[in-house]
């Protein structure tokens, strides 16, 4: 079990190699398969997370949730997507047609690109990049531009307000997000995700960097535009923000991309703070990739819990909290981490 996916990859590689393909072509094909597998995982996962969200919210609200399509309603979202695909994609008359269409096409790009460097288990990383964390931070903020573009192209005032909120929110929360990770990087001295996980073999960074984790968590909720920071959509104020004019599959793409982003920040939280695929309490008989997914879904559940408990903050409160609380705190965290590390080294503990 432990090496299920690793040996699968090795098997395919040897199969291709014996088939007489050159080294280069084999590498290329295997890489392609790996990325394809990740793509399938993300899409299926986004689909099922909608179901999970609906079930979680239902139980929190004393309801049952979807239970008609498929066993326990498990096929509900599949049916929903089927419905959304068959619906008309309406392009408003005054919209910027090209940009309007480009929005839902591009929205999946940043999370998918980042997943290529995520370590899903021991030896299970598609591309073991030495600047993985940096790559994640650089690409994750790209979705801001895409959402803003979609909102601008819609030519709708609600969309415009939503788009402006996206930009303001992302700029203010990217900052503490990056700064909160710096603490981890100071401790490990590497940007490679696999190395960061290996560095947590003795103790997870959530225990060494509790403040860093908290700031990351808050900033991550804001990054994914989920409650209590869902100002971008803010359905009780600005209908659906930048996605107001989208219908059918275009809307579904944004909707699913939100979940892809949730998976993404959860994967990052797991990697950076929760010890990645490392098994706690020496329970190594459970495969590493199961541990990884368990931790990821625990984080996702946490995000859902937030969403169905908290009301929405106001736009000025959001900015104030970001700049006046989170940024100073994360800088203080870096400072303390630095001193701690220096003391650790000089005292030779």
């Amino acid at each position: 079990m432990e090496n299920l996916f690793v040996s699968m990859a090795a098997g395919i590689r040897s199969l291709l190699g014996s088939g007489g393909l050159s080294e280069w072509a084999t590498d290329f094909l295997v890489m392609f398969l790996k990325l394809g597998a990740i793509l399938v995982y993300i899409l299926v996962s986004a689909l099922w997370l909608v179901y999970m969200e609906r079930k979680v919210s239902a139980y929190m609200q004393c309801r049952i949730g979807p239970n008609r399509v498929g066993p326990m309603g498990l096929l509900q979202t599949t049916a929903d997507i089927g419905k959304l695909i068959s619906k008309e994609f309406i392009i408003p008359k005054d919209a910027d047609k090209k940009l309007f269409l480009l929005g839902p096409i591009l929205i999946f790009m940043p999370p998918l690109a980042v997943f290529a460097v995520a370590p899903f288990g021991k030896g299970m990383v598609a591309i073991d990049m030495n600047i993985g964390v940096y790559y994640f931070l650089a690409l994750a903020s790209l979705s801001t531009v895409i959402i803003w573009m979609a909102g601008w192209a819609s030519n709708n005032k609600y969309s415009l307000i939503g788009s402006m909120r996206v930009v303001a929110q992302m700029v203010s929360y990217e900052m503490p997000l990056i700064l909160s990770i710096v603490g981890v990087i100071i401790l490990t001295g590497t940007l490679n995700m696999s190395d960061i996980i290996h560095a947590q073999e003795n103790v997870w960074f959530i225990f060494l960097q509790p403040l860093g984790f908290l700031i990351y968590l808050i900033a991550a909720v804001a990054e994914t535009n989920r409650a209590p920071f869902d100002l971008v959509e803010g359905e009780s104020e600005i209908i659906c923000g930048p996605f107001t004019e989208y219908s059918g599959m275009g809307f579904a793409m944004f909707f699913l991309a939100e979940y892809a982003n949730v998976v993404l920040v959860s994967v990052m939280a797991t990697t950076l703070f929760l010890g990645g695929w490392l098994a706690p309490f020496g329970l190594t008989f459970i495969p590493s990739w199961i541990w990884f997914l368990l931790k990821v879904y625990l984080m996702i559940f946490l995000f859902m819990w937030f969403r169905w408990t908290y009301p929405r903050v106001r736009v000025d409160q959001l900015m104030e909290f970001g700049w006046k609380v989170l940024v100073p705190l994360s800088i203080a965290n870096i400072f303390v981490t630095g001193i701690g590390k220096y003391l650790y080294h000089s005292l030779g503990w």
């Binding site: 409650a227 009780s236 908290y310 009301p311």
Partner: peptide, 16 residues
């Protein structure tokens, strides 16, 4: 009012 401020769960509780 809870829903207006963004907390949908409160809405369901009172309606229950």
């Amino acid at each position: 009012y809870a829903a207006d401020v963004g907390g949908l769960t409160g809405f369901i509780y009172t309606f229950r």
